[in-house]
């Protein structure tokens, strides 16, 4: 199933990406409508992170093209925000939370202009929205995982973008933080933002996302979440792994563990 929309915020056409000649994404083709909370779901190594990196031009494309707001990335870069995986940076870096959030202002200002009072106000406002205002002058080396993630989200908010691409924002955060991040994303959607989230947990995905992409190197499905979440499509995405899981379940019930042949 691949539901195409008219006038999409993001269009990926025939995208193929390879690392060392091994395809990580193969012929991926989809469109995403405005104002949705979108989940990219798939097993480990399915190319989920690579997909949003390719959209941001961070990995070279083998073939295909990507359009944002019916335009190239370079001309709409100020409207797009990218939130990398939390583990991708060194959190022992000598910087404060505010320093990191202010980076969200660099794109609009350029690198040579000084940080203005207004930039700081926006940064504090963003910190407030993620409940991190009290931590503004804290060194990032002293943050917990959930606080690190919220710092990254505040930086993204400070960019004042319209389209947000987030790589695993729920990875390694506790349940309370996850809940508060989801609330923030819903709030952002209400403001008309489009948010694309790489996510690995199937169960919560059904509750969180309006639109879901099922990905496993190839695109298995793209459409409204309730239409995409069918046993058949999930089986196709997770391949043998889901069947293996159900087989293991059956075996556990019958308590018949196969002995290794001699």
């Amino acid at each position: 199933m691949n539901i195409q929309v008219d006038n999409p915020v993001l269009e990926v056409h025939d995208l193929t990406v390879s690392y060392d000649k091994k395809p990580v994404l193969w012929d991926v083709d989809f469109t995403i409508p405005y104002g949705n909370l979108v989940g990219i779901i798939g097993p480990n190594g399915a190319g989920k992170s690579t997909l949003i990196k390719a959209i941001m031009g961070l990995v070279p494309k083998g073939s295909g093209y990507i359009k944002l707001y019916d335009d190239s990335l370079d001309s709409v870069r100020h409207k797009v925000s990218y939130v990398p995986q939390r583990e991708s940076v060194d959190w022992d870096f000598p910087a404060s939370v505010l320093d990191v959030v202010l980076m969200g202002r660099y794109g609009k200002k350029g690198l040579l202009k000084r940080v203005s009072k207004k930039d700081k106000e926006i940064a504090y406002e963003s910190l407030k929205r993620v409940n991190m205002l009290d931590f503004a002058s804290r060194q990032i080396s002293q943050l917990s995982g959930g606080q690190q993630q919220r710092t990254f989200l505040a930086r993204a908010l400070a960019q004042e973008a319209d389209l947000y691409l987030m790589d695993e924002p729920f990875a390694g955060v506790d349940a309370a933080t996850e809940r508060s991040i989801v609330d923030l994303l819903l709030e952002m959607r209400k403001e008309g933002k489009t948010i694309v989230v790489v996510h690995h947990d199937l169960q919560s995905a059904i509750d969180y996302f309006d639109w879901t992409l099922l990905l496993n190197t190839r695109l298995v499905a793209s459409g409204p979440t309730e239409k995409v979440f069918t046993t058949e499509l999930l089986q196709e995405t997770y391949g043998g792994k889901l069947t293996l899981l159900s087989k293991i379940g059956d075996l556990m019930k019958e308590k018949q563990f196969p002995a290794r042949e001699k």
Binding site: M56, R77, Y106
Partner: peptide, 22 residues
């Protein structure tokens, strides 16, 4: 002094830097 932001940004988070066009 003049390149502080650029050096800071590309040192701390190169992929974010690239994403905002630096």
């Amino acid at each position: 002094i003049f390149g502080y932001k650029g050096l800071f940004l590309t040192t701390f988070d190169p992929s974010f830097a690239a994403a905002i066009g630096v």
